[in-house]
Amino acid sequence: MSEYLRRHDGVVTLAQARAAGLSKHSVSRHVRSGRWRRCSEGVYFADDRPFTDAARVRAAVWSYGDRAAASGLAAAWWHGLTGFAPPVVEVTVPRDSNGRVHDGSVVRRRDLADPDVDEVRGLRVTAAPLTVLEAAVKRRDGAKLFDAALQRDFHLRELWQVHLRNKGRHGSPAARRLLRAAGDGARSEGERLLVGILQRAGLSGWQANYPLSGYVIDIAFVAAKVAIEVDGFAFHSDHEAFQNDRLRQNVISVAGWQILRFTWLDLTEYPERVLATIRAAIRA
Rank of each mutant, 00 (worst) to 15 (best):
D231P: 06
L164Y: 14
M1R: 06
S23C: 14
Y210F: 15
A255C: 11
N166H: 01
E189A: 15
H155F: 13
R248C: 03
D184C: 06
D114S: 12
H102Q: 09
D238T: 00
A136M: 02
K138Q: 15
N209H: 15
Q207Y: 12
R176I: 02
A284M: 09
T52K: 06
R110S: 13
S97K: 03
A70E: 05
S253V: 05
A220W: 07
L156N: 00
G99T: 07
S105L: 01
D184M: 09
H239D: 09
K144W: 13
V61W: 06
E3S: 13
A17I: 03
I217S: 08
Q258L: 14
T52W: 07
D147T: 08
W77G: 07
A201T: 03
R246N: 08
R109H: 14
L265W: 01
A241W: 07
L150T: 00
S23R: 13
T126C: 12
V195F: 05
N209M: 08
R261F: 08
E240I: 12
W77E: 09
S71N: 06
G171W: 03
R49I: 10
G34Q: 12
K138L: 15
K24F: 08
V132W: 07
E41G: 03
P173Y: 05
W78V: 00
A75P: 04
G196Y: 07
R56D: 11
I228L: 11
G202W: 12
V43G: 07
S188P: 04
G104Y: 09
A227R: 05
S253R: 14
G72T: 08
S188Q: 14
K225G: 01
G190V: 13
Q258E: 13
A76V: 10
S97C: 03
F45N: 02
S213I: 01
A281G: 06
A59V: 05
S23G: 15
G10N: 14
D66C: 03
D153K: 12
D114C: 02
P211C: 10
A143E: 08
A201F: 06
F51G: 04
G205F: 06
Y4S: 04
P115F: 12
G168H: 04
A241F: 03
